[in-house]
C-alpha cells in the first residue's frame, strides 16, 4: 500500500520535471528553430537522467 503511494508521488514528481523540461525545450525551439536538433538531444538527455532517478526510486521501493 505504502509503496503504491510512494510510486504515485514519484510519478507526480517525475511528471512535473518532464513537463518543465518539455515546455522549456518547446519554448527554446520556438525561439530558435535552427537549434532544434541540439535542443532535442539535450532535452532527451536531461529527460533520461530524470527518468533514471524516477525509475531508481520506483525500483528501490518495489
Amino acid at each position: 500500500m505504502y509503496n503504491l503511494i510512494g510510486a504515485g508521488m514519484i510519478v507526480i514528481g517525475g511528471g512535473i520535471g518532464l513537463g518543465m523540461i518539455g515546455s522549456k525545450a518547446m519554448e527554446s525551439i520556438a525561439r530558435q528553430p535552427e537549434a532544434a536538433g541540439k535542443i532535442q538531444t539535450a532535452m532527451i538527455i536531461i529527460g533520461a537522467l530524470l527518468e533514471g532517478l524516477a525509475f531508481g526510486a520506483l525500483i528501490l521501493g518495489k
Binding site: 533520461a48 537522467l49 527518468e51 533514471g52 532517478l53 525509475f55 531508481g56 520506483l58 525500483i59
Partner: peptide, 11 residues
Amino acid sequence: PFSLLVRLYAN
C-alpha cells in the same frame, strides 16, 4: 551505472 541499468530494464 545503476541509473543506466535501471533505466533500460524498467523501460
